[in-house]
Computed example of a mutant assay.
Amino acid sequence: MPRASFGIGTVRIRAGSMREVGLPITRLVTGADVSLPVRVVHGRQDGPTVWINAAIHGDEVVGVEVVRRVLARLSPKTFNGTLIAVPIVNVLGFMAGERYLPDRRDLNRSFPGSARGSLAGRIAHLMMTEVVAKCEVGIDMHTGADRRTNLPQIRADLDDPRTRKLAEAFGAPVMYHAKLRDGSLRSAARDRGATVLLYEGGEAWRFDEWAIEAGVLGVRRVLAALGMIDAPEGEPPQESLVCRQSGWVRAPGTGILQLDAALGQRVETGDRLGGLSDSFGKRVRLIRADRPGIVIGRTQAPLVNRGDALVHIGEVPGDTPGMTAGEGDFVINA
Rank of each mutant, 00 (worst) to 15 (best):
I229V: 15
L241Y: 00
G297P: 04
I154D: 06
T30V: 07
F170Q: 00
P237L: 07
T10R: 14
P161Q: 02
S35L: 08
I229A: 08
V40I: 01
L226C: 07
G297F: 04
P317T: 08
G9L: 10
A325K: 12
R27K: 13
N305W: 10
G247H: 00
P237Q: 09
G307L: 01
K77N: 11
R116A: 13
P232R: 11
L158P: 08
A85Y: 07
A15G: 10
A55P: 07
A262T: 01
R147W: 09
L101P: 08
E65V: 10
N90C: 07
R12I: 07
E136A: 06
A224E: 01
K77F: 07
L180T: 10
G293Q: 05
G121S: 11
R291P: 04
V304M: 06
A145I: 10
P302L: 02
R99P: 07
I88V: 14
V38Q: 04
G9F: 11
T254A: 05
G31C: 11
F170L: 01
R250W: 00
P232G: 12
T49H: 10
L273M: 01
D59M: 15
M1D: 13
G218Y: 05
P232W: 13
R206C: 09
A309L: 05
E136C: 05
M1V: 15
L217M: 15
W51E: 09
Q245I: 12
G121N: 08
R220H: 11
E20G: 11
S110R: 04
A169R: 06
F6G: 09
P112A: 00
R272D: 08
K77L: 14
Y100C: 06
V62T: 13
H57R: 01
V21M: 02
E315H: 09
F170R: 03
G297A: 04
A124Y: 02
V222R: 01
D278F: 00
R3N: 04
T320G: 02
D191M: 15
L119E: 03
L241P: 04
V132D: 10
Q238D: 15
L92F: 04
S118H: 11
P302Y: 01
G193V: 03
G227Y: 15
A167H: 06
D308G: 01
L180R: 12
P37C: 12
P48T: 08
V67M: 06
A301W: 06
A214R: 14
A167C: 07
H312V: 03
T78P: 08
R148L: 02
V40Q: 00
S35A: 14
L92D: 02
V89L: 08
V222D: 05
A169T: 07
L185T: 00
R39L: 09
S35H: 13
F170G: 01
I8D: 12
P173K: 15
D140E: 11
S75Q: 13
G215L: 04
G322S: 06
G144H: 06
Y199G: 10
S118P: 11
S240M: 07
I123C: 03
T78L: 13
R99K: 09
N150V: 05
L223M: 00
L151N: 06
V295E: 00
E20K: 14
A289V: 03
S184C: 05
E327A: 14
S246R: 13
A178I: 06
L197C: 09
T299C: 00
V38F: 06
K134A: 15
M127C: 12
D191A: 15
I139L: 15
E235H: 13
A15Y: 12
I25D: 01
